[in-house]
C-alpha cells in the first residue's frame, strides 16, 4: 500500500476513535438554550423556531452566510472576465423537454412561493425556496431557453445583491430608534422577516443559477483544444 493510504487510514481511524469517545463521554449541558428559544418565540415575529433562530435571534450569522454565497459568484464573475468564455451554446433541442417545462415551471414557482411562505410556521424558508427556484432556472437552461435579461450584467448583479442589500438596510434602519443592529420592532418583525426572506429567495436562486452559468461552457476543453470547438459540439443545439 502507498504510504499516503496508510497515513489517511490511520488518521481517519484516529479521528473516528477520538470523536466516538467524545460522543460517548458527552455530558448533558447545564444551559438549556431550547428553553430560552421557546420563551423568546412570541417576540420573534414568526412561529417556526428554526426560522426565528435563523432570521431573528442569530440573524447576523445568516447575514454573513449570504455574503459567503455572494462571494462565490464574485469570484466566478472575476474569473470569467479574466478567462473569457465563448457565447454559451448549452441546451438540448428537445421538444419533449420544452413541453414538460411548460408544465413544470408554474409548479416550480408555486413550490418556491409555498416554501418561502411556509418558513414562518413549518420547515421551509429562503434557502430552500431559493434552491427550488434555481432548479427551475437550470431546467430552463437545459431546455435551451434563452434568458437574455440574465446576460445583462446590471440586472443580474442587482438581483444577486438585492438579498444582502435588503438585509443590511433593514438591519441598519431598525437602529434609528436607538436599538442595536438587527433589532426588529416586535410588531413589524414578521413583516420585516418576510421581506428579507423574499429578497433572499430571489438572490439565492439567482446566485445558484449564476454559479452554473459562470463556469466555462467548454469545460471539457483544456486551453489547447479550444481552437477546434466544432468537432466537439456536434450534438449540441446552437
Amino acid at each position: 500500500m502507498k504510504p499516503r493510504v496508510i497515513f489517511a487510514g490511520l488518521l481517519s481511524l484516529a479521528i473516528a476513535g477520538a470523536l466516538g469517545w467524545a460522543v460517548l463521554e458527552r455530558t448533558l449541558p447545564a444551559e438549556n438554550l431550547p428553553e430560552r428559544v421557546a420563551q423568546a418565540m412570541p417576540l420573534s415575529g414568526v412561529e417556526h423556531p428554526i426560522t426565528a433562530v435563523l432570521l431573528n435571534f442569530r440573524g447576523y450569522d445568516t447575514l454573513l452566510e449570504i455574503a459567503v454565497l455572494l462571494l462565490a459568484v464574485v469570484v466566478a464573475l472575476a474569473l470569467r472576465e479574466a478567462q473569457p468564455d465563448r457565447p454559451e451554446r448549452m441546451g438540448l433541442e428537445n421538444p419533449l423537454l420544452r413541453a414538460v417545462m411548460a408544465w413544470l415551471l408554474p409548479l416550480i414557482l408555486i413550490t418556491t412561493g409555498f416554501l418561502l411562505w411556509a418558513g414562518a410556521y413549518q420547515p421551509g424558508g429562503a434557502f430552500q425556496a431559493g434552491s427550488v427556484l434555481a432548479a427551475g432556472g437550470l431546467l430552463l437552461r437545459l431546455a435551451g431557453v434563452t434568458t437574455a435579461w440574465l446576460d445583462n450584467p446590471a440586472v443580474l448583479r442587482t438581483g444577486l445583491a438585492m438579498g444582502l442589500l435588503t438585509f443590511l438596510a433593514v438591519g441598519l434602519l431598525v437602529m434609528l430608534p436607538g436599538v442595536p443592529f438587527l433589532t426588529y420592532p416586535t410588531e413589524y418583525a414578521g413583516a420585516l422577516i418576510l421581506l428579507i426572506e423574499l429578497t433572499l429567495t430571489l438572490s439565492i436562486g439567482l446566485t445558484l443559477i449564476s454559479l452554473f452559468r459562470l463556469t466555462p461552457p467548454y469545460a471539457d476543453d483544456p486551453e489547447e483544444a479550444r481552437d477546434q470547438p466544432s468537432s466537439r459540439n456536434g450534438g449540441m443545439a446552437s
Partner: peptide
C-alpha cells in the same frame, strides 16, 4: 453606531463596488 458599521459598511461597499 460604529460597531455594526465595522462589518455593515464593508459589506455595503462590497455590493456597491460589484454593481
Amino acid at each position: 453606531w460604529s460597531v455594526p458599521l465595522l462589518f455593515a459598511l464593508p459589506l455595503a461597499l462590497g455590493i456597491v463596488s460589484l454593481l
